[in-house]
């Protein structure tokens, strides 16, 4: 049994309204010097098999459901 971490990020150039609004809110709370704020989504998934199998299964999960290749990149690592 392995636990894989799947990190789904927006591709470069895709606007991130949630990140932008969070940045505004942080600034409104008085945080100074806040640069770009990005939102990412992380899944921790328990899967059977070797680490290698787990990673390739995770990548398959991304292709079938977890990521839309038009706007998102994914990275699968074993935790």
């Amino acid at each position: 049994m392995a636990v894989i971490e799947i990190r789904i990020e927006l591709k470069k150039g895709v606007a991130d309204p949630e990140g932008r609004n969070t940045k505004k809110a942080l600034e409104a709370l008085g945080f100074e010097g806040v640069g770009e704020v990005k939102t990412v989504k992380v899944y921790d998934i328990e899967v059977e098999g070797t680490h290698e199998e787990a990673v390739s299964e995770g990548e398959e999960m991304c292709r079938k459901l977890l990521a839309n290749p038009v706007i998102q990149n994914f990275k699968v690592t074993v935790r």
Binding site: P17, E18, N68, V70, I71
Partner: peptide, 11 residues
């Protein structure tokens, strides 16, 4: 998918 319907600009 070859397109996406993504978060409104307003968030």
């Amino acid at each position: 998918p070859t397109a996406a319907l993504y978060t409104n600009d307003s968030g």
